[in-house]
Amino acid sequence: MKILVCISKTPDTTAKIAFTDNNTKFADGGVQFIVNPYDEWYALVRALELKEAGLATTVTLVNVGGADNDPIIRKALAIGGDDAVRINLESGDSFTIASQIAAVAKDGGYDLVLTGKETIDYNGSSIGGMVAELLDAPYVSLATKLDAAAGNLTATREIEGGEEVAELSLPAVISCQKGMAEQRIPNMKGIMGARTKPLAVKEPVATDALTSIVSFELPPAKAGVKLVSADTPEELVRLLREEAKVF
């Protein structure tokens, strides 16, 4: 079983969110970028575990982006993975990116494509489903568990108020979230090794974007907290009932 893990570059979780160019671009000056946590902590680590258990032969990382994404790809390679592919395309909507990943998956004959449940910047939760459709493969989204045996997978996914367990055949696409694996901290050996792992740069396949971002905006500032004295908590209950009308 050959695994392809989708790796996305996102701003650090503490990054200040602001926009430039008339609110059409994320202000990335001074922002630290990280591997999207869902991709790193869950998709990548689970792929590595499957390989370590002898259930996968290779783990390849794929990223769609410009050359400035290479440090992030190397960071992910420091955690693990045999090699990486970067599709040299600066930006695009979810469908454009999914089309690139599907093309890599098809060309490379990958059996299993893993993604994080969403990126923490665009929050689309769409790439996995789109890739699956383009590959005509089954898809389990928001998976919390994944096991493999002889050409078959068992995956558990989150549903409202519970979970659902399903069996599916390969090739398949799974989007991963909490529960799937535990975060791994790269060690010195991993970091050194990552420098020499193969990172192939490929040109994108032709696709059309289906959507485009017109502008960004920040939520209106909160009016400010209304503080109630700890001596009169019943006043808080009154406000919640009469002013906020929540119960």
Binding site: S94, F95, S125, S126, M130, L134, L210, T211
Partner: peptide, 17 residues
């Protein structure tokens, strides 16, 4: 979240999720 992206890719219909 599981269906809408598939449908979008299938119909080549833009998705806002």
């Amino acid at each position: 979240k599981a269906i809408a992206p598939r449908l979008s890719a299938r119909l080549k219909a833009g998705l806002v999720a």
